[in-house]
Design a protein around this nucleic acid. Sequence first.
DNA 1: TTAATCATGTCATTACTTGTCATGTTTTAC
DNA 2: GTAAAACATGACAAGTAATGACATGATTAA
Lengths: 313, 313
Amino acid sequence: MSKAKRLLDILMFVTAKKNFTAQEIADEFNISIRTVHRYILDLSDMGMPIYSEQGRNGGYTVLTSRLLPPILFTEEEVVSIFFAFQSLNYYRNLPFDSEITSVEHKLYSSLQSEAKTKVDKIRSYIAFWNPKRTIDTPFLKDILEHSIENKNLHIQYESKSGMRKKHIHPIGVYAHDGLWYLPAYDYDKKKILLYRVDRILSILSAEKNEDDFMNLKEWFNFHEVKNPVRLHVILTVEGVRQCKSVHYFDGFVGTQEDGTGYIDTIIDRGELNFITSLFLRLGSHARILEPKELIVGLRKQAEEILAMYQDEN
Amino acid sequence: MSKAKRLLDILMFVTAKKNFTAQEIADEFNISIRTVHRYILDLSDMGMPIYSEQGRNGGYTVLTSRLLPPILFTEEEVVSIFFAFQSLNYYRNLPFDSEITSVEHKLYSSLQSEAKTKVDKIRSYIAFWNPKRTIDTPFLKDILEHSIENKNLHIQYESKSGMRKKHIHPIGVYAHDGLWYLPAYDYDKKKILLYRVDRILSILSAEKNEDDFMNLKEWFNFHEVKNPVRLHVILTVEGVRQCKSVHYFDGFVGTQEDGTGYIDTIIDRGELNFITSLFLRLGSHARILEPKELIVGLRKQAEEILAMYQDEN
DNA sequence: TTAATCATGTCATTACTTGTCATGTTTTAC
DNA sequence: GTAAAACATGACAAGTAATGACATGATTAA
């Protein structure tokens, strides 16, 4: 076996083990201790942060987190990594900040000037925009970490009715439109609720979770319809156009030959509140047939607005 | 110089040159032709796609796009790359698809099982959600490419009033809320308009652009206010809460000591249409003082809704 | 003090690398 | 069809690097 290959093997062995003696390596790879010492010298020369302790119970220790064997990329592959990093640009408080910076640095400096230009262009011509909010999300990293580690949390949360303590189990964390959301099982309310990470005021404590919960993907697919209500709406041509751009109605917008259309589906009563504002905007482009409550809600909102501005003309 | 180092040098030299003869390498590195042949054998053994053509005018050719020197990553750095890739998950028709797959594969297979678990967890606990639309964006890759290459385009575009031909210069491309937008200079209308990439029906032709335009970043910061209008609103506590979650008002929401607040800023008249639906939703939580048009618009919309449902009770 | 470690040096042996030379093969220009 | 320019491969000697065995020293903990 070539020296280079063997050095790589040892590198992997050693980064996995973190603590080892020369004898162990010698036995593992069937080489003499003298050679092991020589190899370790080579590895430190190559920049591996490895240090030794003499004396009984001494040995070697690898300082850094594990190093991976060197990986060969093509230029296009590296460009694709920069493309992916570009998509994180408009977020704040992301985890892996320093790692991403160091990866970017390593990769960029290995590129030739032509490819550097390409990366620069991607950076200036492509954006994954989201509202670059002034809202701070200081606990994002912690929440992500705890979610991944399957912990339960006690948090202080700023809800509509003021500051509350919550005992929750995170299902996962997701970003939408620049905000971070935390679907989590609330132990007091005994159901899964959706929290906003920026409204978490502090994490009081975390403990290992023992229970079983659905994961994030399952939660996304899971739409518990507890109070089913039929939503039945007729749409003008313009109404169809606008509804098709609303994700909520994805797939539910039916069209007639003349371009007009309809929505006829089952939704949860809890969602009516959210839907009201959609139909307020659509005005006469959408005529609701069912449910009654939605019509009542719309009228109430409309009346509220008219009442507020009745004295102005 | 060690063999390994020299092999790397040659690897870089040949990937940059793409076409070369053994003699050239021998001269460049001051080694014998025989050794060059041996090195090339080594490189192919290492997986470099290098092939030879015999005969006069023959030589070696490197098949792939340029390979970069092997790069050492720490485990955390690799995890951060997977984190970034995760953010692309809910998009369709992205460029660099195959590159990302191959990078993922290379990296994942080099990870140890412990780190693999971490990557798996990131994949199942973190999402960058956006409306995973059923809308197809077949021209996204092409549009991106042409933007980067500073081309002008003739496209067929599906606008409100039907299919139109457009002659444009792309400023850049950005994603927002799952849709791709293309700010571009319209040569006919002589101004920058915003197109939706999914509404591009075909690209008729592309030609090199000679003119100077602003770039995407400049465009983001550029808000031409042609018809300035003062927007002045007073907000209840709940109104403040809701407005702060609306990106459009970022930074413009002032608060009083008692928790109520106000918005007082200058906007463009063209934006009133969009704002109307925001205030429809807010109802009595937001009382508009100025501009008059907005109040008129709100009342009109409210009356339209009431008229539509007047016979129902 | 002793045993377990690392650290370093020397030296003979072995393994690998390199250059030179030789011999083919393939392709193209003339 | 021949010569030139290229790759392909083999053999071998000379040179270089890697290895193991052994020796010695230093450091640390039991």
